[in-house]
Design a protein around this nucleic acid. Structure first.
Lengths: 241, 241
DNA sequence: CGGGGGTTTGAGTCCGTTCAAAATACGTGG
DNA sequence: CCACGTATTTTGAACGGACTCAAACCCCCG
């Protein structure tokens, strides 16, 4: 493991997020967490952990975007999900005590803290509420819920890509004054393909159709959606293939 | 909600399973659990809970087989997984405090206890180890891990069905004296189709191929696999479609 | 200005679907 | 125990979406 660039950025940004599991800690527990965490900076393309690695703790994303990718035995790549700032990752393998099932890679410059295993166990042992928060995090994991919408063979690629837009809405979309929505996608065509379980060529074709139909105007990593309700409608009401 | 047939079967069978979350309880906690649980008997086809219902607690399967099914907005049916005796279900929606994402249906006669929400909270609040066990259960949930093997559009139906056999191996397979393996599937062709994300017709065709190739001899709900290593090989080494 | 990765486009093929019908199991009641 | 109606499974033929392979195109960056 190469030595990571270190930077003593502040915990406050994470603690103040009410969704963060750590927000339930009291002052002394926060001080303990602040002493034991190991902050690092990752550049685009660098990996925080790799599939089949053994977990060493939990990773808290202060800023930046990441992807979780999984490779099968024939090198098919599946993007499980995009990780946004404020999220904690690595919890599934950590709590199941099994090797990582995916590789976490930085898409942009990321500030990330590793909370070592011993620290987690110490904090959870002394605070049932923290355990409950992680129970909720695990139970709310969007992966299992989103997977059928993104990768079910029942759904056409067109519908799967529309579902992807809906899922990426919170985190990547901003409202424009004219009522339309603008996405700034953190991922490229290839990753879109890997998320909806298809090939870049197919994504390209479908994206062109959507542009021609005026449903979603793709232009590089920017997407303009004039009418989000139309996307919802097409994603939900459309016939199975 | 119709009134359920009740039967005071014994907790011991569940507690004695070391994988059971409840095995970490002490005597007084077990007594409390025994007082608050609500045992029921379900016949094949009956549902324990339905998609979009609000969770009322956790369900502990003492005996019998169940399936977890999910329906999308166009009534496509996806079988998420088969549930075997000893497992607890309903935990994802319970801990995430969201409606059930799936319907649980009995395949055979099932003895099932409902552990009401209040009892769970009481027990977890007083025993961090129980919380940890549920953290592990949630983290080990096979759904997210198995889904890509069963429903990834990257994989042919043939490979997906072979992966299904491998997954069902523990729980449905017994070793025969001649070294082959015999599966007693708890599900029908239609359910196989819903598990691997395809249609019954396609399952029928693939199953015939596998029989002709001598890889897996399907005969009604019984499957004989002369050489399990060959299944492993075909499932893993096979080309993506 | 010239690589080089990523994206787009095209033509041909294949897997899996659809629709329809036959065949086989299953349960129920006579 | 057998006959009958129903549900499930199997088979067939035709269609269609997505894949493969291959080449052209573009944008970014040095």
């Amino acid at each position: 493991m190469e030595k990571r660039e270190s930077l003593r950025f502040d915990c406050q940004a994470c603690w103040s997020r009410s969704e963060s599991e750590w927000s339930v800690l009291d002052d002394s527990e926060r001080a303990y967490l602040d002493r034991t965490r190991r902050p690092s900076l990752y550049r685009p393309g660098e990996s925080i952990f790799r599939q089949d690695d053994n977990p060493t703790g939990l990773y808290c994303i202060q800023s930046g975007h990441m992807v979780l990718k999984q490779f099968d035995s024939f090198d098919n790549e599946t993007v499980l999900r995009v990780v946004l700032p404020g999220e904690t990752i690595g919890y599934r393998s950590f709590f199941s005590e099994t090797p990582h099932a995916a590789t976490a890679t930085a898409l942009t410059l990321c500030r990330i803290c590793l909370i070592p295993a011993a620290a987690i166990h110490h904090l959870i042992g002394g605070n049932v509420v923290l355990a409950s928060r992680f129970l909720k995090t695990l139970a709310r994991d969007r992966g299992p819920t989103e997977a059928p919408l993104l990768r079910s063979p029942h759904l056409s690629v067109r519908v799967r890509i529309l579902n992807l837009l809906l899922i990426l809405r919170d985190g990547c979309a901003t409202d424009l004054p004219d009522g339309s929505i603008r996405f700034q996608l953190p991922i490229k065509r290839q990753d879109i393909a890997a998320m909806v379980g298809t090939r870049p060529e197919t994504v390209s074709r479908v994206v062109r159709e959507l542009r021609e139909d005026g449903v979603a105007v793709f232009h590089r990593q920017q997407v303009d959606v004039p009418d989000i309700d139309r996307v919802l409608e097409l994603a939900h009401m459309s016939m199975p293939i």
